[in-house]
Amino acid sequence: MAFILLIVAFALFYLYMYLGKQGKEIWVRTLPAMAAIPEAVGRCAEMGRPLYWTPGIAGNLNDSTQGPQVLASISILGYIARECVRAGVKIDAFCPIPDALPLVEETLRTAYLAEGRPEEFSKDMITFISGQSPYLTGTLGYFQRERPASTILIGGFYYESVVIGEAGNTIGAFQIGGTNNTHQMPFLIATCDYMLLAEELFAAGASISRDPDLLGSIKGEDILKFIFLGLMTVGFILGLGNVTFLIDLLRM
């Protein structure tokens, strides 16, 4: 059944990506967290302070749960970086994952290049600190010394989320959070002004690109959701009557 599910999912994603390319209009709900990024950058420009970005520290790129979240965060960094270059805002990227360093550097470099200011890019924008707790102390120290006006905490987080979030609040930073790690969502909600919850994290990069190809896959996801909603509704009604054939089918 898992294999059928994977095939159905891929077929739906492909179908809607294809339809998107053919010109079918796909509307995607605005994600408030993404819409707030220009505000976050603007605030930094106004106050003349840097913007802090981190993808969290939950795992390496080859970690099945955390890796994709880190990548999604780097995708969003591309967008943030271009906004920052346009507004002349300095980005401080704290990347505690060594294997993601080349991607972060490439992303920032490309953003500066795309905005026609490659000479402004510097490797010093990227800070690497090994280990979760030292990364946390490093961030706390940095917050007090540099006082970034906005912080972007999007990616795979563990316990550092609440500490960074609260420390950001202490210095009055405008904060945008996002994670697919259930265990950290409550803290990012509590400490951030805007938040990308679960799936929104993966869809965020596609939603801002307005690329029909990428938007199509989000539409495909929604159709898949409808299928699941249908399965659950029918299964629930059958369950009320103690009929379990759908369960047996799904367990195949």
């Binding site: 059944m1 898992a2 749960t65 299964g235 379990t244």
Partner: peptide
């Protein structure tokens, strides 16, 4: 990641939801 979510995150959750 993708192969790992199919059963525990999707199918098991649906089955668990609709099991009376």
């Amino acid at each position: 990641g993708m192969r790992g979510v199919l059963i525990p995150n999707l199918l098991d959750q649906v089955v668990s939801t609709i099991t009376p």
